[in-house]
Amino acid sequence: MEERHLTCIRCPLGCQITVTLDNGEVVNVTGNTCKRGDQYARKEVTDPTRTVTSIVRVNGGDVAMVSVKTKTDVPKDKIFDVLETLTDVVVEAPVHIGDVIVADAAGTGVDIIATKQVNA
């Protein structure tokens, strides 16, 4: 049996939730005040995901850097692998919101796209 402690972020109350796992299977969730906390905790311990945001350099644009994000969430343990794929990436202006900057980042199947308009 393994216990994991986390803070629910679904509302400002921030319940301290304890999840009991047996071989990776959730057997018990306590500390949550409502159903949403239960859902949050189960997802957090079995399949935690995050949207990753960063920047990459632009050549010939009206700003030096363009902001980017993973198009959807990626597994939390892939965050730094995803960031790694951005090192040394340089794009040419113009850049439009939604342009793919890195396709299938770090084998997650998720593209990294631009989140800022950069004019040439």
Binding site: T51, T53, S67, K69, I97, T115, K116, Q117
Partner: peptide
């Protein structure tokens, strides 16, 4: 939907 700051501004 959850946007980044620059997307929201745009």
């Amino acid at each position: 939907e959850e946007l980044t700051g620059p997307e929201y501004a745009q």
